[in-house]
Simulated scan of single mutants.
Amino acid sequence: MKGPLFYAKILLFGEYGIIKDSKGLAIPYNSYQGALKMSENPSDVAKKSNQNLLKYYKYLSDLKTDLVHFRLDELKRDIDGGMYFDSSIPQGYGVGSSGALVASIYDKYADDKITVLENLTRDKLLNLKHIFSLMESFFHGKSSGLDPLNSYLSLPILINSKDHVEPTGIPSQKQGKGAVFLLDSEITGETEPMVNIFMNKMKNEGFRRMLNEDFAKYTDACIDDFLHGNVKSLFGNVKNLSKVVLSNFKPMIPMAFHQIWQQGIETNAYYLKLCGSGGGGYILGFTEDYEKAKDLLKNYKLELVYRF
């Protein structure tokens, strides 16, 4: 048995903002993927994954919802038979490792599942997002359901608000000098503590005002620019967003990266932003000249995501 592949995802814009109902844009990232597999001679990693699937099975067994029904007996039988999730998606890196697992379990074991092939109405998408939110809460304590949705549909998703998500098209890549890239912090981040820090900050009126005014304004502008291919305007808005994040989300940026974050803003060679909840994992970069950015960041591991 080998299940279909489910890909990693990158939230280009909207981290934290989507918790508070502003816009977001997520795209599939096909460099990493995962699939459910069986093994006669499991490795230690496969055994650990199998044990985690058993815990997940228990969580799904206790889930009280009318939105979805799982064939739990079949899932338990497969887990007992040694099933595991074979994944190249790095965990704690903000690229949706748990989302791909959730998508694969839903795909294989949900009855009357909503599929990519049918007409995806707004209601169906919201239903899916809600189901995935419940399923992924096992991993993070609180989940928007967006990561599994992106992985399951393998389409760019535009989040207009909590109750309005839609698949979207993004401009095709060009062979230009500009790029979106990932910078590897080589530190594992954990979502839950970062979200808790954010929720505590939300008690502060000044922080809430910054989020509603500056953060949401620049995030929405970045999304509009990206979707419409307005590259010049995009970089101006990404720079402003990068500044806002550095000033207000410092606990989510590993200390070792504060200086190179500032360097990007001062030199205009690249701009950094959070990729997911932060605290480690990947940091997302935008540059109008990828070669120049690579040179300035030569001590770090970079991965290309998209070309302008």
Rank of each mutant, 00 (worst) to 15 (best):
Q33K: 15
A269K: 10
V244N: 09
G92M: 12
I260D: 04
Q175S: 14
E288M: 12
L75Q: 01
Y271L: 02
I19E: 01
I265P: 04
D184S: 06
P148L: 11
T121Q: 13
Y57N: 07
K124N: 02
G94E: 11
F13S: 05
L304E: 15
G280F: 12
D21K: 11
F215D: 00
F139M: 08
D225G: 05
V116E: 11
M255I: 13
K2H: 10
K250L: 14
S97G: 09
Y32V: 09
R208V: 05
P42M: 06
L25Y: 07
E74Y: 11
M199Y: 11
C275G: 06
I253C: 03
F235V: 02
D86N: 15
A100S: 15
I105R: 00
G94P: 08
L146F: 14
G3V: 10
G178S: 13
I10T: 01
F198E: 02
P171G: 09
F85H: 11
D163R: 07
L182F: 13
L126R: 10
V244Q: 09
N50P: 11
K20D: 15
K47C: 15
R77G: 01
F226V: 03
R71P: 02
I265N: 08
I19T: 10
F181C: 12
V68G: 04
K76V: 00
Y56C: 08
M210A: 03
I27K: 03
E205L: 09
H258C: 06
S39R: 13
S143I: 07
D225M: 06
L182R: 11
K2W: 03
E15V: 00
E166I: 12
K55D: 15
L304W: 04
G82M: 02
I283G: 13
S233K: 11
I114N: 01
K201G: 00
V305I: 14
K64S: 14
D163Q: 14
F286Q: 04
N248G: 05
K203R: 13
S31E: 15
Q263R: 13
S242G: 05
D295G: 04
K142G: 03
I10H: 03
S43L: 05
I19G: 01
L11Y: 01
S144E: 03
M199C: 03
P251R: 06
I159Y: 05
N299D: 15
P254I: 10
S185N: 02
D214N: 15
K9V: 04
L183G: 03
K232W: 00
E266D: 15
P167S: 08
K273D: 01
Q51C: 06
K64V: 14
V244E: 12
E205F: 09
F138V: 12
V165H: 02
E190G: 02
G92E: 07
L117C: 08
E192Y: 09
M202L: 15
K2D: 13
M135E: 06
M202I: 05
S88P: 12
L11N: 11
S185E: 02
D78F: 01
C222H: 12
G94Q: 07
M38N: 10
K243Q: 11
A293L: 05
F6R: 13
E303K: 14
M202A: 01
G276I: 09
E205K: 14
I197V: 11
L302H: 08
P148M: 10
K298C: 11
K113D: 01
N204G: 00
N196M: 07
G3K: 09
V102N: 03
L75P: 00
S31H: 14
L72I: 07
H228Y: 06
